[in-house]
Design a protein around this nucleic acid. Sequence first.
DNA 1: TAAGATTATGTCGCATACGATTTAAATGTC
DNA 2: GACATTTAAATCGTATGCGACATAATCTTA
Lengths: 148, 148
Amino acid sequence: MDTAENYEQLKLENQICFPLYAASRLVTRLYQPLLDALNLTYPQYLVLLVLWEHDGLSVNQIGEKLHLHSNTLTPLLKRLEQQGLLQRRRSTSDERQVQLFLTPQGTSLKAKAAAIPAQLAATAALPLDKALALKAMLDELLKQHQPT
Amino acid sequence: MDTAENYEQLKLENQICFPLYAASRLVTRLYQPLLDALNLTYPQYLVLLVLWEHDGLSVNQIGEKLHLHSNTLTPLLKRLEQQGLLQRRRSTSDERQVQLFLTPQGTSLKAKAAAIPAQLAATAALPLDKALALKAMLDELLKQHQPT
DNA sequence: TAAGATTATGTCGCATACGATTTAAATGTC
DNA sequence: GACATTTAAATCGTATGCGACATAATCTTA
């Protein structure tokens, strides 16, 4: 094995995963001032995006969409329930499942959030074509590692 | 304002930042089995990448490279010190600064880590050209938000 | 040079992530 | 139908991230 080449690949500037890690945190920080107005964190915002599209999903169904498990989601969902944005309710057909239903406040928050994507695009300062190309590549990477 | 269009942009599938968030977490999970052999977390590995290139940097100098601050780095560095991989030492020229120096164990870990980039590339299953294109776009995004 | 501003690190609190385990409900199988 | 297996949530412990603040050292500047 070529040790010199291997060491070359240990340099930070040659890492592919580091820019992914740094960019993800950067973008979350860019969201934060916008989300502060709604009193949400970025993962909480993601959960609401899901519920605004599909109200009444179970914990695992939300987790499938966000690639998160109940160990992360349960406490997060309890906090959203505390804030009065949603209600957690045991499914009657399958009592193992907990379904999440938006409250009127949770539903109405969607209107306030409507401006966020455009605002974020403005602050991120990434041209639309590059943003879409980036998204396409990330989606491909994610798709290759879907469970199933 | 076009509310329907704004709502369209609130769909999860139209988010650019969500795949970034999900891919970053995915890749960190892909690293984990490789890093387990070295008893490291991914952020700890990143710190060592920096020190293997530039031993003796201060907390903030590491933070600049990784885009992290002392509130994150100090506890992490203390854990690496506990593991015997590095030593934290007050700078004599400027007693506000703490410099990080690799121990022999910390230095020797580099040889064990040498195989990781290639192993990760294999598991990530992303063709090199796409990986490089992805990195280029992420680097551009990060560059636009450099402090200074 | 003394006092205020700046800088580097550290501490604290909160909210994720996530592996490992637990509990209860539903399902499969004989 | 009893029982082992599987499944959905929840719980626990550890390690980040990060905003806000505290502290000590250095710098500025009047």
